[in-house]
Nucleic acid binder design. Structure first.
Lengths: 302, 302
DNA sequence: GGCGTTGGATCAGTTTTCCTGATCCAACCT
DNA sequence: AGGTTGGATCAGGAAAACTGATCCAACGCC
């Protein structure tokens, strides 16, 4: 059996809570005639009398008393959930890979929040799933320009380049069995930023260095952890010069081959988002903020 | 904040349960275009995306997954309650005073149910409240024709007369201090059928019998109990000859003054019901049935 | 690769629902 | 008697909902 007319249920519920049609009309922003008609319609539909009409309002019948709490609970639950979702709909939902988040975006978000107190940002620090960026779940993401399989409905705004070069602790570059010959990197522990091991593979291929087992070494779930292992002297990490700029500046990591830098074929870091939200006010605000900020960071990444 | 468009919520819920718009359209008896539009409208209203569209249907987003159980629970509860009320709306609701119910109507209802298996009768055995017959709660009632204060919107169908005469246990009429003089009824315990004591008052006034304290005696909540007390020899009850016909036939009650009978000024027993339901099919069926039955009972009440 | 199928999106036009504003009535109070 | 308040009703208009047609994307089958 189909539900009764939902607007009639809502009118009945309001009238019952207020013990009258006039107050219900006020709450629902309709006329008392409309409430009266809704209630009449509902009583006809159900075949029961819901109100006893008095000269000063209405009283609930036993049937009306049975129905009221069910409707009040139902509409209250719906109102709470939809209000919460509407609040969530007002959020700017951003997804960012872990290393990039913790080493670039997360610390800077305070600045954005200060510039835009009216925009509630929800940052998810996580890699994309199997299907890549999920436009249904996020307003914006950080990725690389030429990642394959991206939907044509996704806009791309370049940020700064991803420049790679091997990095290690100073004593690994200058100690006894120090790393001075690029063709000898295979003799050291390679520290990988992901199971794909793509960064080492890219660098070795770019400089035509063979005889290195790229399957060897240690794999970490993200670059941040691989970098921290390198700082501990555990091996050589294929560092992203921008993301590791603090370690390099501090000398906790050094570049054994500073002139041997390359970029990933997947292009620069970029901001991505669904085309239909690209001009959304809060998305625009974030894009503009990031453009201003990453201009400086782009220079710093050279 | 007002609720979102309720029909859009319903369309979303059905689509979410079915993982698709086509099946939802089937369930709701609308076209897939209508479902699509409802969902689009709801997403715009809430400012969140509820579905991920695929080529073979839709998947719920996290927001959609939050909203679905709330709506399913709400609509299920509403559907259950309104279905139950509709079933109740199909009932024939009758209210009858206790003695009349237990001594006349209740035992005969089986006959009506046999004649009309399609009509579900709900008999309430109770006196009316302060406001008299409640047309919002009951389809039919049993009363006396000329009860004061009755709404003009109530129809009346006469049944049989209410004939009064004193009745007592045989040994009270024939024992040592036996009841042989109507002017001596005050020497015995008067058994009253209600706090109003109206039946005794009526009889005494009809036959001009003075010197009897009508405030004396025992008061019972209804005639049935007063009659049973009389059968036990506790005193003299002002019996309704029709309702006490079994005790009189069996000799467990006797009439000390069989020629001294009167009727109440409030008229005959009658069936009452609201005018707007008087021609309702199930009300008609009951009225016809009662007319057939009470023709016989009217004769028996003489 | 072409064709057919299925499901979602869109829209002009139509239908249905909902609403307003006016009016009426009953029951109360002053 | 007159004024106030709340519910009932209805003609006419507005808004919501819907249909049917069309389009597109993504798949499976041949």
């Amino acid at each position: 059996m189909p539900l009764p007319p939902l607007n009639a249920l809502r009118a009945f519920e309001a009238a019952a809570r207020h013990n009258g049609f006039v107050a219900a009309a006020d709450e629902l922003c309709i006329t008392r005639g409309a409430v009266s008609r809704h209630v009449k319609l509902l009583e006809a539909h159900l075949g029961v009398t819901l109100f006893r009409r008095t000269h000063r309002g209405v009283d609930l019948t036993a049937a009306g008393q049975r129905l009221l709490p069910v409707l009040t609970d139902a509409f209250s639950a719906i109102e709470r959930e939809t209000r919460s979702l509407t609040a969530q709909g007002a959020e700017l939902r951003i997804i960012c890979p872990p290393a990039l988040s913790i080493r670039w975006l997360f610390p800077r978000l305070e600045s954005f929040r200060r510039d835009h107190p009216e925009i509630r940002v929800r940052l998810t620090t996580e890699f994309y799933g199997q299907q890549g960026f999920d436009a249904a779940e996020y307003d914006l993401g950080i990725s690389l320009e030429h990642r394959p399989g991206r939907s044509p409905d996704i806009e791309v705004q370049p940020l700064f380049p991803m420049v790679l070069s091997p990095a290690c602790a100073p004593d690994l570059a200058e100690g006894g069995a120090r790393l001075t010959d690029p063709h000898q990197v295979g003799a050291f522990t390679l520290l990988h930023e992901s199971p794909r091991r793509s960064d080492w593979a890219t660098w070795l291929e770019t400089f035509g260095i063979g005889g290195v087992d790229v399957e060897s070494g240690e794999v970490f779930p993200n670059l941040d952890m691989a970098v921290r292992a390198a700082v501990m002297g555990s091996g050589v990490v294929m560092a992203d010069l921008f993301l590791c700029r603090e370690e390099l500046a501090r000398g906790t990591l050094v570049l054994p081959f500073p002139d041997m830098r390359c970029e990933t074929p997947e292009g620069r870091y970029c901001l991505i988002g669904p085309r239909d939200k690209w001009k959304d006010r809060k998305v625009r605000a974030f894009r503009d903020w990031v453009a201003g900020m990453s201009g400086m960071d782009t220079d710093a990444a050279r």
